[in-house]
Amino acid sequence: MSNIIQMTKVNKISNGKEIISNLDMHVKQGEIYGFLGPNGAGKTTTMRMITNLIQPTSGTIELFGQLLTPTSYESLKRMGSVMEYPIFYENLTAYENVIMHCEYMGFYDTKAIQEALEWTGLADTKGKLVKYFSLGMKQRLGIARAISTKPELLILDEPTNGLDPVGIQELRDFCQKLNREFGITLFISSHLLQEIDHLADTIGVIQNGKMIKEVSMSQVRSQVRDYIEVVVTDSKKASFILETKMKITNFKVMDGSTIRIYQSGVSPIDLSKELIDNGIGLASIIKKELSLEEFFLETIHKGGVPSVTSHPIGI
């Protein structure tokens, strides 16, 4: 599969500060790409570079297989974007805003405009000026506007901002529909993993302007391991027993009372018996799955989990 967005060694220095450093990114055609990172990591800057609002200081960006330059107007015609806090002409109605957008994009299909408004549930707002819209409605209008020109690539910057849980779920379903039924490639940024982990095919993690990891979710899911968490009276003593008596090496002492055992083939029954026999009080013993959240936290703080190779997707 070919890459619809490819960024190579992209740097952005603004006011003497390095905002993006040496960023590589690969978004494949037809996938949903989750762009994950804490606030201020450089997500919006990266997206503004893709939409040609900001020029990289060095490095290259390719869109649809073509180098993006300040005059790549053909590439801009093929994508739609919704930036954080979508901006509109507040004194126009939803319909007028979308029409205006289409006029500038050079795309004239009134049916598509009507469809986009219907899809986002805004078809019955005729006559209502955008300045009277709620934030949730504005978010939906942003999407309506972006998809009204039938783009091949849709860029959504923090699309769940200001949405209630129902709205977030609707948005997720909507993104999936766009992706599956219309084959639109989606590039979605978020600072919360749980917002995109069920949606994304690939996740790129950015921190301090650096791409820390790009990983396919199917790979992550297969790598996420089970572990046993035991809560004991004395984790120091317990860890000694695990090592010497049970010959378990792959475990981690979380705090004064909690231990996580990652090693496979450890029976909780044997484990509890051994601990109790050695005079250690056992408060609880649970079999758990390492959550994606923890997986990514581990990735961010330690620079990679050894069991998952970096850049596992075909580059």
Binding site: Y73, E74, L76, I87, Y104
Partner: peptide, 8 residues
């Protein structure tokens, strides 16, 4: 910023 992202 909307206008400047258009293909013009």
């Amino acid at each position: 910023s909307i206008l400047f992202a258009y293909p013009h």
